[in-house]
Amino acid sequence: MIVVKVPGGIKKEVSVAETLTLEWKPMTILQWLGQLGIEEKQVGAVLVNGKPKKMSHTLEDGDEVQILPVLSGG
């Protein structure tokens, strides 16, 4: 299983934060986002067990994933 924390507002239809527990499959972060219906460009960063990882990173069983919202630069 993996646990995914999704902040509110990343998906148009979900305004509140949600925590999802999902059955693990050997997929990259980008593939997981696609499965969750989240556009990559709506995601500011993805932390896996507290560390930022690229979209090409493959999740492992037991991972805790936190999706963070987009920022404005500076």
Partner: peptide, 10 residues
Amino acid sequence: TLGTASMVRI
């Protein structure tokens, strides 16, 4: 975590 550099990919 990433700072404003997170915007590069986006």
